[in-house]
Each structure stands twice: as structure tokens, then as C-alpha cells.
């Protein structure tokens, strides 16, 4: 199992959607954290756990951008097979991310 703890591995203060929206965007999160760790997890045949607890809060556009990119680069199947989302503080974020992946239109 590989774990990304967003608060310590990425930022405590997440930004919005694109690089152009400022620091710590969803796009940057995908490029810096999700993509390399997911490749590693697939190579090692283990799950990738993403823990969203401990931050100041995410706008939906952050999730939308990073998980749409995940689907576009790796496919929905990889999300369902490899990704485990942890969000104990705000459980609805798990629902939101699942909905984004479900709605992703290839």
C-alpha cells in the first residue's frame, strides 16, 4: 500500500482547479502526487490510499480537476481497482469524488 497524506505530502491549504488558479491546484496535485504514486502502485501491484484529512478545505474544482485527469490518463477502472479515498473529517468528499469519476465521460 502506498499512502498520500495530502496535509503533509502536498499542502495544508489547497487551491482551486488549474496551475493558473494559484498554488496547490488540483492539476498540480495530479501531476505531483497522484500520477507518480499511482504508477508506482500499479508497478508494485498495491493500492494507493489518498488521505484528505487535516487540511483547511477543498473546493470541488480541486477534486474535479485531479480526478478527471486521473480518469483521462489511467482510466476509470484503475480508480476503482487501485484508489482508496480517506476523508474522515468530511465524508461527503468521498461521495463527491466517486460522483466525479462516475460522471467522467470518455
Amino acid at each position: 500500500m502506498i499512502e498520500i497524506k495530502v496535509q503533509t505530502d502536498f499542502t495544508e491549504k489547497p487551491g482551486a482547479r488549474y496551475y493558473g488558479d494559484g498554488e496547490a491546484s488540483g492539476e498540480e496535485f495530479f501531476d505531483v502526487c497522484i500520477a507518480p504514486n499511482l504508477r508506482k502502485a500499479m508497478a508494485e501491484d498495491v493500492n494507493l490510499v489518498i488521505d484528505f484529512d487535516g487540511t483547511e478545505g477543498f473546493p470541488n474544482s480541486f477534486f474535479s480537476e485531479s480526478f478527471n485527469r486521473l480518469c483521462s490518463n489511467f482510466g476509470k477502472k484503475v480508480f476503482y481497482e487501485r484508489i482508496v479515498i480517506v476523508s474522515n473529517e468530511v465524508p461527503k468528499w468521498i461521495k463527491i469524488i466517486n460522483q466525479i469519476v462516475k460522471d467522467y465521460d470518455q
Binding site: P14, G15, A16, R17, D21, T55, E56, G57, F58, P59, N60, S61, F62, E89, V90
Partner: peptide, 18 residues
């Protein structure tokens, strides 16, 4: 302390400003 849902919404407001 933190209020993640509130901060997330405020970031959306700021993004919408642009």
C-alpha cells in the same frame, strides 16, 4: 480550528471572482 467545508466554499467564491 479549521472549518474545511466553509473554506472550500470561500475558495470557490475567490475562483469565481476571476
Amino acid at each position: 480550528g479549521r472549518c474545511p467545508l466553509l473554506c472550500g466554499a470561500i475558495i470557490e467564491m475567490i475562483r469565481n471572482t476571476v
